[in-house]
Structures are given as structure tokens and as C-alpha cells.
């Protein structure tokens, strides 16, 4: 691309028109799109064959449905539960718990993380607490959350929060620290104050990593949903799975698991879209 021909010169300013315009679709770009499309087809085919093999094997009758029901059986169960409105309720309950818990932890962790990431002293002050909280599984918070918050939704949000706060914080601290120091130097070189550096460089510069981190954390938040719904829950995908276990409803268990994956996939697609909107400048790595 950086060939002699494309470079504008002062001698011939009209040459600039030869530059590929941003909105124009240049041939190499289209090729790339075609390639990613065919990769997508491969992914879809691989998933479909996985389902097909699963279906065939279970239909052959070697494996009792108690151990592994056919995917079609899971789909039928899903359809029944969808019609009687039960499934949507489970998906909605869990999604609400995960999203509220996650948002609270993101809202707390991002500003706090940026602060800790830019001040070594603050980091030193809070390091011990973070190290203590970090390894605790969300399940470990069940007894205390029950004592402090009771059995309502707040308790469930708290479980998701406790499971996602520390990782969100650590990702943000890392993101803040990973801002290229030369950019900070450049800003200071132009006379930027500490506050300006924070606003103009550290905040936008850490955004892609923070966003990438939060995407991982949202996935983690979903893994806490079983812990969150272990106590005093009558609805939710975690409840669906654990209750299915009590009644040996393996199809319901698999349905619950599939719904968690599906919801995470959908949320991921939405997030990728949001990311493209709010970080259009992101450099692909």
C-alpha cells in the first residue's frame, strides 16, 4: 500500500485523489470478507455435523436418554417450555441477575481500576484486599450474602457481583497500565496536565483492553449464575439445571446449559457491535 504511486507529493497535489477513499470498498478488503464468510460457513457446518452425530448416536439407542438425550429431544422440550412461557422466564431471570450484577461490578471496577492503575500508592494500599478477594469462588459468598442481604434478588446480584468484581478490577488495572507510555510522553510534551493526560490519553487508550476484559468478565458472570441461583431461587437457568438434576430430567439440564451458551453468544454479538460503535479506531491485532 505504501508504494510510490500512492504517495501524494506537493508537486502534484491532484495525486491525492488516487488515494483509496475510506468508504470505497477496495478489492483486498472484499477478498477478506469473502474469506471470513467461508470460515463462518465452516463453523456452522461443524456445529451442524456435531449435532447430527450426536443425534445419530443417541438414536441408535446405545445410550439411554437418561444419560444423554438426543438433541431433538432437547429441542422438543425447549419448544414445550417456550410455549408455556416457562423458558423465557428462566432466561429472563438469569439474564437480569447476570446483567445487573455485572453492570454494578463494571461500574465500580472500571473507575476504581483506572485509579489504581494510575497510582502506584493506591494500588499498594488496596493490593492486599484484592489478593484476598480474588481467589474466592462466588459460591463461597453464599452464606455471608444470605446473612447480609437475605434471600431476595439483591443476594443474587451480590453473588454475581462478587464473582465478577475482582476480575473486572484486575483487567481494568492492567488495561490502564498497558497504555503505551510514549503516548503519555507525547501528551505531556505538548503541555498536557496530569488530569488532561488522564482524560485525553489514559481513558481512551485503555478502552479497548477494558472492553475486551469486560467481555471476558461478562462470560465469567454467567458462570456464577448457578451459585447465585442455588439458594432461594424458583426461576433462572441455574435453577432449571439444578432442579432438573433432582428429577433426572437430563433434557432439561442440557436445555438449561444450551440456553446459557446461547444467551452468552447473543450478548457477545451485541457487545462486538457496541465495541465497533464506540471504539471505531481500535487497531486490529
Amino acid at each position: 500500500m505504501t508504494s510510490f504511486h500512492n504517495s501524494p507529493t506537493l508537486a502534484n497535489q491532484k495525486n491525492t485523489n488516487n488515494f483509496p477513499k475510506r468508504n470505497q470498498k477496495s478489492p483486498p478488503k472484499r477478498k477478506k470478507k469473502k474469506f471470513t464468510l467461508s470460515l463462518k460457513i465452516v463453523s456452522i457446518l461443524s456445529f451442524l455435523s456435531f449435532l447430527a452425530i450426536w443425534e445419530i448416536i443417541t438414536q441408535m439407542g446405545f445410550i439411554p436418554p437418561l444419560f444423554l438425550p438426543a438433541p431433538s429431544q432437547v429441542v422438543v422440550r425447549g419448544y414445550q417450555m417456550l410455549i408455556d412461557g416457562e423458558l423465557i422466564g428462566h432466561i429472563f431471570s438469569s439474564s437480569r441477575r447476570v446483567i445487573v450484577g455485572f453492570l454494578i461490578s463494571a461500574l465500580a471496577a472500571v473507575p476504581f481500576g483506572i485509579l489504581l492503575g494510575s497510582s502506584k500508592t493506591l494500588k499498594a494500599i488496596f493490593d492486599p484486599i484484592i489478593s484476598i478477594i480474588r481467589p474466592l469462588p462466588s459460591m463461597a459468598w453464599i452464606p455471608l450474602s444470605l446473612l447480609w442481604l437475605g434471600i431476595g434478588e439483591e443476594q443474587k446480584y451480590a453473588i454475581v457481583f462478587m464473582g465478577s468484581f475482582a476480575p473486572a478490577l484486575l483487567y481494568t488495572i492492567d488495561a490502564t497500565r498497558s497504555v503505551n507510555p510514549i503516548l503519555i510522553k507525547a501528551a505531556r510534551n505538548f503541555g498536557a496536565s496530569n488530569l488532561t493526560v488522564m482524560r485525553e490519553v489514559i481513558l481512551p487508550g485503555s478502552m479497548p483492553s477494558i472492553f475486551a476484559g469486560l467481555k471476558v468478565v461478562l462470560g465469567l458472570a454467567w458462570t456464577t449464575v448457578i451459585s447465585a441461583e442455588l439458594v432461594a431461587a424458583n426461576e433462572g437457568l441455574g435453577f432449571l439445571i439444578m432442579n432438573g438434576k433432582e428429577y433426572f430430567m437430563t433434557d432439561v439440564i442440557i436445555l438449561g446449559m444450551a440456553m446459557i451458551s446461547l444467551t452468552v453468544i447473543i450478548i457477545d454479538i451485541v457487545l462486538n457491535w457496541v465495541e465497533k460503535k464506540i471504539i471505531p479506531w481500535r487497531e486490529e491485532t
Binding site: 503505551n180 510514549i182 503516548l183 510522553k185 507525547a186 501528551a187 505531556r188 510534551n189 505538548f190 503541555g191 485525553e200 490519553v201 481512551p204 487508550g205 478502552m207 471504539i279 479506531w281 481500535r282 487497531e283
Partner: peptide, 19 residues
């Protein structure tokens, strides 16, 4: 310390990717 009396053109450009 850092000052703004001499403007640097960095060897690695140091452009702000978000601008």
C-alpha cells in the same frame, strides 16, 4: 522534568490511535 518548550517528533510517530 517534562516540559513543553521543545516539541518532539517521535521516531515511532506516537500518534493517538483514538484521534
Amino acid at each position: 522534568g517534562i516540559h513543553s518548550n521543545a516539541t518532539m517528533v517521535f521516531q515511532q510517530y506516537a500518534l493517538f490511535p483514538w484521534k
